[in-house]
Amino acid sequence: MYAQFKGYGLLPVLIDYETALELGEIKNPDKKITREQALAQLKEAKKLLDLEVLTQKNMKN
């Protein structure tokens, strides 16, 4: 399925919706994530916390 809308400069832009979902360019908020994806997100958050990019206060919000 393709979606068409006006892009920058009002030129038509076509988006391949299914491919964008598969590549993670857009996300389906109703789709459950896998265990591996959840672990990857936790590891990324821990890495950002260790680098002090995030604080525990940021993570609670």
Rank of each mutant, 00 (worst) to 15 (best):
Y2K: 15
Y2H: 05
G7A: 05
G9K: 13
G9I: 13
L10C: 04
L11G: 04
L11I: 08
P12L: 12
D16Y: 04
D16A: 08
Y17M: 12
E18K: 12
T19G: 00
A20D: 02
A20G: 00
L21A: 01
L21Q: 07
E22K: 15
L23Q: 15
G24L: 09
G24A: 04
E25V: 01
E25S: 00
I26V: 12
K27L: 11
P29R: 10
D30N: 12
D30V: 05
D30K: 15
K31W: 02
K31I: 05
I33V: 14
T34S: 15
E36Y: 03
E36C: 01
Q37M: 10
Q37V: 08
L39I: 13
L39A: 03
L39P: 00
A40M: 11
Q41P: 00
Q41S: 03
Q41W: 05
L42G: 01
K43A: 09
K43N: 13
E44L: 15
A45T: 13
A45H: 01
K46Q: 14
K46A: 10
L48W: 05
L49T: 03
D50T: 10
D50A: 12
L51W: 09
L51H: 06
V53Q: 12
L54D: 05
L54F: 14
Q56K: 14
M59I: 15
M59V: 13
K60W: 06
